[in-house]
């Protein structure tokens, strides 16, 4: 019944890996602006101690720079910050990408204004099917990338074993999924590396794959504990209110007592796990085999 077939991915193992950095807090652009050009160490330094959980090929050097949030409608960058980032990318000779979240209807006007600032060929990471449709219709010169909120997979760091992880396999190789991405003009998919994952989990996905490292996201809500910090009690923990972006100032780090699970954190409305070294090695193996053509470094 699901008979659509696609050609296998051409071996991209001979091409240099693409390397991106994804920045959420537009205020941190100022620190990047001090660099005349960006190196892999500049990117890795942004990760602090978490850089030890990234394994990059020797020839990996920056090719992309992203700005924006996948997880929150309140963190869409200002047009001024977008202009600045686009100009910096021209100086650095990097491709710019705007990262966008699941949208409420109120976000589409600001999104239109933001997208209008992008040069032709810039990337837009979309995490909402409606945003993908909107980009295709109104901004056909931009290149949409399916973000990791659209590439569904089980990522529960508490799972007792790999057997549990197999309960809900991903559908990234399904013919209709590819057809839908094609229909929306999406030519690339960005994914996480899940707990109990293996390098070959990316094999056979017949379009280019980028992996976020060294943090995967576990779950994200629209309700935000941190975003309620400045609200009066009756308005807390509900959608549709304003936000002072407190998540850019604080995060939470911890674990379940008595476990040796992946380090976990919560920032704003999203929970993350940090990769273990074995996971970094698996991503590197996937790169070596040509199953992954881009690594996007980002914090939690």
């Amino acid at each position: 019944m699901t008979s659509t077939q696609h050609a296998p991915t051409p071996d991209s193992g001979t091409r240099p890996i693409e390397l991106g950095f994804a920045l959420v807090d537009e205020r941190e652009l100022a620190a990047f602006a001090r660099h005349e050009r960006l190196t892999r160490d500049d990117y890795l330094d942004q990760l602090g101690e978490a850089r030890d959980y990234v394994a990059l090929p020797d020839d990996a050097e920056p090719t992309h720079f992203f700005l924006g949030s996948e997880f929150c409608e309140h963190l869409l960058p200002s047009v001024e910050a977008i202009d600045r980032a686009v100009a910096l990318c021209e100086r650095w000779d990097l491709t710019f990408g705007l990262v966008t979240p699941i949208a409420c209807d109120g976000l589409f006007d600001p999104l239109r204004a933001a997208l209008a600032r992008l040069p032709a060929g810039a990337e837009v990471t979309v995490n909402d099917w409606g945003v993908a449709r909107f980009v295709q219709r109104e901004f056909p010169d931009l290149r949409p990338v399916a973000g990791r909120l659209l590439g569904k997979m089980l990522k529960d760091p508490r799972l007792p074993s790999a057997t549990w992880a197999r309960m809900y396999p991903n559908g990234l190789r399904a013919g209709p999924f590819r057809d839908i991405l094609d229909g929306l003009g999406i030519g690339r998919l960005e994914l996480d590396f899940p707990p109990f994952g293996a390098a070959d989990m990316y094999a056979g996905i017949d379009f280019p794959v980028g992996v976020r490292a060294p943090y995967g996201y576990i779950a994200k809500g629209r309700i935000c504990k941190m975003g309620s910090l400045s609200l009066d009690t009756p308005e807390k923990f509900s959608p549709g209110h304003k936000c002072r972006r407190e998540c850019l100032g604080f995060n939470e780090i911890g674990a379940r007592p008595g476990t040796h699970e992946l380090p976990t954190s919560q920032r704003g409305n999203t929970m993350y796990y940090r990769h273990a070294k074995g996971m970094a090695a698996a991503v590197a193996e996937a790169v070596k085999n040509g199953w992954v053509s881009r690594i996007v470094l980002s914090g939690a």
Partner: peptide, 12 residues
Amino acid sequence: VFEEGTCHTVHL
């Protein structure tokens, strides 16, 4: 608590 479509966990 999280959005169902972006909570990639199981109810253990």
